[in-house]
């Protein structure tokens, strides 16, 4: 970032709301394709269901993604619907987890993570088959190169013939007319000099291109004045810019300098 200035957007101070901070939440680790299905799911509609079974070894949880969402669409293949939900541990650095939501003006502390689950693909044949198909699709997609060789019989033209000029192509008619109307005409010397001085009062260094635009004078005519009144900077930091000669210079911070003359 050195040397180049970037306009910085202002970072807003947000208020924190802790009304819901006592809520207990679940943090569920899911496979990526399940997260994709959630993105696709409409707000407020059913995403899935959790079923509990009691077994001698303890409770077992099953997570069913809504079958409608598991169908292939938008280039996504079908995915398994039924998943096991394993109870994870909240230990080590994971033991102190909270969730906040970020809106335009407010940060909401949504609650504390009390339970963690890991959603995993099932090992039964039906789910496995579906899962393997999904993985195959992903692998094939990854191997697909972006560009392909196509053999053509005809030669292909890069340009197309047209009856408009390049200028006409890139400018509007109004612009072209405006340019004709403001054709640069030579003003008398005093007016040009005062224009130059006014411009240099605002900024110390101005490039020739900009001076032409400011004064609206033909470049060759303007150059005569510039050579008379200004010096040309050929070195950095203000390379290729014009600057008033010291005897013409007057800036507010530089009171000791010579006053403006015409």
């Amino acid at each position: 970032m050195s040397g180049i200035y970037v306009d910085q957007p202002e970072i807003k101070q947000k208020t924190v709301s802790t009304e819901c901070a006592q809520n207990s939440l679940w943090l569920v680790k899911v496979p990526k394709y399940v997260a994709e299905r959630l993105q696709k799911c409409e707000v407020g509609s059913k995403f899935g269901a959790i079923q509990t079974q009691r077994t001698p070894a303890g409770p077992e949880f099953t997570f069913e993604v809504e079958p409608k969402l598991c169908e292939p669409c938008n280039g996504l293949p079908a995915c398994p619907s039924s998943h096991t939900m394993k109870l994870g541990t909240l230990a080590g650095v994971n033991r102190n987890l909270a969730v906040y939501s970020d809106t335009q003006d407010v940060i909401n502390i949504e609650g504390v993570v009390k339970t963690k689950f890991d959603v995993m693909q099932r090992s039964d044949p039906k789910s496995s088959l579906s899962y393997m198909k999904l993985k195959r699709f992903e692998a094939e997609k990854k191997m697909d190169p972006g560009r392909k060789i196509v053999i053509t019989n005809k030669s292909h033209n890069n340009f197309k013939p047209s009856n408009v000029s390049r200028e006409q192509m890139y400018t509007t008619k109004a612009e072209r007319e405006e340019k004709l109307r403001n054709k640069r005409t030579r003003l008398d010397a005093d007016a040009v000099e005062s224009m130059i001085l006014r411009a240099f009062k605002k900024h110390q260094y101005i490039s020739q291109k900009h001076l032409v635009a400011i004064t609206g004078q033909p470049e060759a005519y303007l150059k005569g004045f510039l050579h008379k009144m200004c010096v040309y900077n050929q070195k950095t930091p203000h390379k290729n810019t014009w600057e008033l000669k010291p005897e013409y210079r007057y800036y507010e911070s530089d009171n000791a300098g010579p006053s403006e003359e015409t």
Partner: peptide
């Protein structure tokens, strides 16, 4: 990077 998380409430 390789996993996704969901919060449930």
């Amino acid at each position: 990077a390789n996993s996704s998380y969901i919060v449930m409430r």
